[in-house]
């Protein structure tokens, strides 16, 4: 949109730990945040991304390049996303979802959220708390009450009462 000439424009992105990355504008504008900056004309020099570290940004740029190389085929894009996320650990995924949110990339965000949920499946409450860095703020009574409530909602299929 902003590029009037036919030659591909390259943008320079800067992570919050001062790493610099070159990326094709056509791939970078998958991020609505970056696109807005480009459209507002503030992309002349280096685009500082204060909420993303270098490691995560490198990963996001790999994704941007990969996905923008795929023609408009939702199936193929989806399988690229799945493959891209398949080897990422929880910490990387957590960083990515924050970055995708900050960069306003809804497709990546949705894919990463789904992946995080997939990793969480069948894990214990303790595991989830540890990974998310959450402290249990329930009192033992409250915790028991929540369990009890759940039991109520999803009692197994009862056999018919006889009388």
């Amino acid at each position: 949109m902003a590029a009037e000439t036919g030659t591909p424009t390259t943008l320079t992105l800067k992570s919050n730990d001062d790493e610099l990355f070159s990326v094709a504008e056509s791939a970078a504008i998958l991020s609505v945040t970056i696109r807005n900056m480009v459209e507002d004309g503030c992309a002349g020099g280096v685009i500082p991304l204060d909420n993303v570290d270098g490691k995560t940004l490198a990963s996001v740029i790999t994704y941007m390049n990969g996905i923008s190389a795929i023609p408009a085929d939702e199936e193929k894009k989806k399988s690229y996303r799945d493959k891209f996320l398949s080897d990422k650990d929880f910490e990387t995924l957590a960083d990515m979802v924050l970055a995708a949110n900050y960069l306003n990339m809804s497709c990546l965000m949705d894919a990463v959220s789904a992946k995080i949920a997939q990793v969480m499946e069948k894990k214990s409450v303790g595991w989830v708390r540890r990974k998310f860095g959450i402290e249990n703020d329930y009192t033992p009574e409250e915790e028991a009450a929540v369990k009890e409530e759940h039991k109520w909602t999803f009692e197994g299929v009862e056999t018919d009462d006889d009388n």
Partner: peptide, 22 residues
């Protein structure tokens, strides 16, 4: 967004018990 992707069993068996905010 993350919880939205979780199946019902995980929501009630686990996520609900994580903390008050969840």
């Amino acid at each position: 967004d993350v919880l939205l992707h979780l199946p019902e069993e995980d929501i009630y068996d686990n996520a609900m018990l994580v903390c008050r905010r969840w």
